[in-house]
Design a protein around this nucleic acid. Structure first.
Lengths: 337, 337
DNA sequence: GTTGGCACTCCCGGGCGACGAGTGCCAGCG
DNA sequence: CGCTGGCACTCGTCGCCCGGGAGTGCCAAC
């Protein structure tokens, strides 16, 4: 079956290129892997693989490197996610178990992921819309300035400032608070807007409607409700030397949380790790990077995503394993909460 | 007074080097600035300046570049902070006035500062210890899991999870909440610990003491209470090409908030802008960078710092102006709150 | 279908020399 | 005494050439 051997050659090329970062030639290939055939044979296979668009050569008379299509095939068919070593497992447990609150879990995860994969890690904060409201509070900071505080089932705390046109008394605030709290407690955020409207608070242009407006806005707002923590940006340094052109746009993108959210994509349940390779995504600046991501959340419900972004030339099996392991562990922590 | 001219030469060297990023020679100097003397004269002055350790040449027969000491003199005696243009002032106002809450103010500031200076911006979140407690709340997330929420005068919200050994009832929680709230409301954080202890809650090893412990810890904790927002990391790309050696450690340091806090230093009042040049600081990786920082806060009280870090070869007058302007504006916003 | 042989391509690194920017020094001038 | 023009010198940069070597594609043979 020379067809099978060709795929073995592809796998070998990917593995070698990932570890050496240099185009790999036929001779080195048969030496480093026990392929049992001669370099000439491998050359024929390589020609065929190139014909199919799976590998390419940077210039004539250089070795081959995988194309995006080649990586895709590698990820889909040629690799199995390697399990984490027990030492790594312990490290994950040790680091994450000390977390104090949700923010801390996210921050530790992002660090951990960056450390494990030596790449840039992304961890999305649990989405608001799927959590339920545990507690609602209204605090009067100043006579015309109220702070709405929402505490969610995931442990997340959302806050929102409201300016009102007329001064309010403490009694007003207390009344509003208990009324709203009663209406909102235990609701899923996504539905809460509706039940809020059905409360039928008079649109008097005054305090009550202003607060309700702000609440509704806060719950549907994507500004703060969809945040992403970034870690390990220093690992971009391993990108080679075409600095200003390749790294700068990436660093810029890392500050655009909207872009990062798109990169992470829709939350997926069930432990599936998604890999997006090179220009499979819509972003020009990520054309030479791959994104490995998966969902996490309590139970089987995915409330957010996490993952890493690194050069297309990355260790896919190892990275996928790390991403999956961290996601599992974080999910377990949320389970307990 | 050739002494005065020498300083003029130094100033010219700094300005030229900052704008061109190349060693500046005697001929170019007299052409670009109206010094009114010949290159030979300038060369003599340069020799003297080099003697004093204010400038240096990368190699024989190259132009001169300022040393850290040279920049220091430039900053201390040779420059006045240029006022911001009215367009810039408007930009600051427009961007910051739309802020929704404290977090938003900080995030917008850090972006703005990075944009104005084309450097890496740092904004410290207002220190806890100087703010007063506006509101204290305790929420039971689960029977053995409580969430303490502190709302501070600066608009900041602090949260802390507490695990207790035995299940608590809602009534217990309510009782504890009102008691603590009464004791803490309006206190300055720094003093609150003391008044908490004087409450004399029995150290029964149970719920109450656990909560009090956590509260005290939360208030004295430097983990979350001293956070720093970072922005414009992409501007590190302008650092030249010795990538892995010069940029990577900086990127790493930018994720170490402890380091950043040290860089920003003690909060200063009164609109003084502090400049730390090159290896004047303790950190090896910041030996080729300068930090321009100042304090901000409501009234004349500095509750936190903000600033930028960039290459020693930076536009000091412009940067100092931007830092000062943003600090002033942010302070004004906190005033209103 | 596999293998060894062979000519060919082309990148990479080192050595070399011309060029030019910039300096230091010196003698002369106001 | 300080400024100036002149001049020799240094040294990094750039373009160039060239040999070595890795790797390929093709072909004939098994």
């Amino acid at each position: 079956m020379q067809d099978e051997r060709r795929l073995a050659v592809l796998r070998a090329i990917v593995e070698d290129y990932v570890s050496t970062q240099e185009p790999v030639g036929s001779k080195a290939l048969v030496e480093r892997h026990g392929l049992g055939v001669s370099p000439a044979t491998v050359r024929n296979d390589m020609a065929a693989l190139e014909e199919e668009g799976l590998i390419t050569q940077p210039h004539t008379s250089a070795g081959r490197i995988p194309t995006d299509k080649g990586y895709r095939l590698f990820v889909d068919r040629l690799t199995t996610i390697k399990p984490m070593s027990s030492a790594e497992r312990r490290a994950i447990a040790t680091i994450l178990d000390g977390a104090l609150d949700l923010d801390d879990v996210v921050q530790r995860s992002v660090r951990l992921l960056a450390q494990l994969t030596h790449q840039v890690a992304l961890v999305q904060y649990p989405t608001l819309s799927k959590s339920t409201i545990r507690h609602l509070d209204i605090v009067d900071l100043a006579p015309t300035r109220l702070l709405i505080v929402l505490i969610l089932s995931t442990g997340r705390v959302e806050q929102r400032l409201v300016e009102v046109s007329q001064p309010v008394t403490q009694d007003d605030v207390a009344a509003l608070r208990s009324r709203l709290a009663a209406a909102m407690d235990g609701r899923v955020i996504a539905d809460a807007g509706a039940s809020l409207r059905s409360l039928d608070i008079p649109d008097d242009g005054g305090v009550q409607s202003a607060v309700v407006e702000a609440l509704i806005e806060a719950m549907s707002d994507h500004r703060s409700s969809e945040r992403v923590a970034v870690g390990g940006a220093a690992n971009l340094a391993r990108f080679g030397d075409n600095f200003e052109v390749s790294v700068r746009p990436l660093l810029e993108a890392l500050e655009e949380h909207v872009v990062l959210l798109k990169l992470l994509g829709e939350a997926q349940t069930g432990g599936t790790v998604t890999v997006r390779i090179g220009h499979e995504g819509p972003y020009q600046q990520f054309a030479t990077t791959s994104v490995v991501s998966t969902g996490y959340g309590p139970g089987d419900e995915a409330v957010a995503n996490l993952g890493v972004v690194g050069p297309t030339r990355m260790d896919y099996p190892g990275t996928m394993a790390a991403v999956r392991a961290v996601a599992r562990y974080v999910s377990r922590i949320l389970d307990e909460a």
